[in-house]
Write a protein that binds this DNA or RNA. Structure first.
Length: 424
DNA sequence: ATGCTCCTGCGAA
DNA sequence: CTAACGTTCGCAGGAGCAT
């Protein structure tokens, strides 16, 4: 029954520190795409009161005062280190669910409950030694409780060794602990639900755990009802096996600078469609339609606002970059209006299904289909080997005035021969 | 009344 | 120097539509 939730500490910052020891012990933030907001904070930065998702320009002053080092995000590096961490963690359980780039669940069913604390310590030490990333481990009988146990481990609520096993606590101890944790710290309880719970005087984890399940179900949703059950040790959320392909694929970006010309927007939409199509083929799926979005900057209240989207169905489900780009550009032309300062575009591939499942229609030309498949394979192979964007299609442009800002990105230490760290 | 699909809101990392 | 506020995914539930 026990489940472990292993979560990397301040993951992006920890990744940067692996290759740059000077970042150790000093305040470091990693910023989102476009150097927009804080997405990962070192403990020193958290201590300065800087919140998650705080915009960089709002903290710049305090950053200068305290010598905060702000880095642009380097997803190539984080993705690579994540794969290494996950691979090590997979050896600790027959069943692993990778939940996000920096955390996974491990099924510990059948392990001796008395040994789980030690097992958690071994997990921490192994990951730290082999990849250099610090992690915390939470152990409990449901996913929701394991998340909460991990939260306690991180906060040092149950000892300071980075492992927390609710199975080691008595009913009374847990109840006391839960009374100290705000209800909003629970997995699945966000801001809106927290606010509504507060009006019902449900303030802590313990308040929600002991609430009337019928009432919670009725006033909120089945989801929160399940959360209450899980808090009481009744599993409602299964460990998911990997390999279920995604149902939709989104690629969108804010621009470094605003853009007005249809031509520039087209380039960005083409570029994002190319990236989306790569992901689609990686999943072995085809898309039935593609949705294009364009936005002005909603934070500029002094400027005229415009946002629009359009869904373009494909004549038949496809994973062909060329067809997808043509559809996306057609959609863009339909919704584009001149005179606005555009800040962001995006594409969404919808109606995804496994490629093998589609039925050829009368209009299918098998020769054309084979040509398309082999062209896409060659393109993917070259881009994989030589780096993203080595081979594309002309439509995505080479000027890329809309490219995002990344003023302080670290190097691709682990994935690019030209950027290997120099050992002195 | 029933069963779809589409769209929006919410949460999470 | 300026201006500057993320991205991607799933689920639930309601709206809208067809039957």
């Amino acid at each position: 029954m026990p489940i472990a939730l292993v979560d990397c500490n301040n993951f992006y910052v920890s990744c940067e520190r692996v290759f740059n020891p000077k970042l150790e012990g000093v305040p470091v933030v990693v910023l989102s795409n476009n150097d927009g907001v804080a997405v990962s904070r070192s403990n020193e930065v958290k201590a300065l009161g800087i919140k998650m998702a705080e915009p960089w320009f709002k903290m710049e002053k305090i950053a200068k005062q305290h010598g905060i080092i702000a880095l642009s995000s380097n997803y190539t590096l984080y993705g690579d280190l994540s794969a290494r961490v996950m691979s090590i963690l997979s050896t600790f359980s027959p069943k692993q669910e990778i939940y996000s780039i920096d955390e996974c669940f491990l099924d510990l069913n059948g392990f001796d409950p008395k040994t789980l604390m030690d097992y958690g310590m071994t997990i921490r030490q192994t990951v730290k030694r082999n990849v250099g990333i610090p992690v915390c481990v939470g152990i409990a009988d449901t996913k929701t409780l394991a998340k909460l146990a991990n939260h306690c481990a991180k906060k040092g609520f149950a000892g300071r060794n980075g492992v927390c096993d609710f199975g080691r606590g008595t009913e009374e101890q847990l109840s006391k602990l839960f009374s100290r944790i705000p209800v909003g710290d629970i997995w699945g309880v966000g801001r809106k639900i927290t606010d509504k719970l507060l009006t019902m005087s449900i303030k802590t984890v313990e308040d929600l755990r002991t609430a009337d399940p019928e009432r919670i179900h009725a006033q909120f949703s089945v989801v929160l009802g399940r959360t209450v059950s899980e808090l009481n040790g009744v599993p409602c959320i299964e460990l998911e096996d990997a390999g279920t392909p995604r149902q939709q694929i989104m690629v969108s970006r804010s621009f470094g600078a605003t853009v007005t010309a249809l031509e520039d927007l087209s380039e960005s939409v083409a570029e994002f469609t190319i990236r989306a199509a790569e992901k689609l083929r990686q999943d072995g799926s085809v898309a039935a339609s593609i949705c294009v979005y364009i936005y002005t900057n909603p934070h500029r209240e002094d400027e005229p606002q415009y946002q629009q989207s359009k869904i373009v169905p494909l004549s038949q489900p496809s994973d062909d970059t060329t067809k997808l780009v043509n559809a996306a550009i057609a959609g863009l032309k339909a919704i584009y209006r001149s005179g606005y300062h555009y800040k962001k575009t995006g594409v969404l591939l919808m109606g995804l299904q496994p490629k093998g499942s589609i039925q050829p229609t009368l209009f299918d030309d098998p020769v054309e289909q084979a040509k398309s498949d082999s062209l896409m394979s060659v393109m993917d192979a070259i881009n994989h080997k030589m780096g993203q964007g080595s081979v594309g299609i002309l439509a995505s442009g080479i000027k890329q005035q809309w490219a995002m800002r990344r003023e302080n990105k670290s190097q691709n230490y682990t994935t690019d021969w030209d950027e290997l760290p120099v050992v002195s």
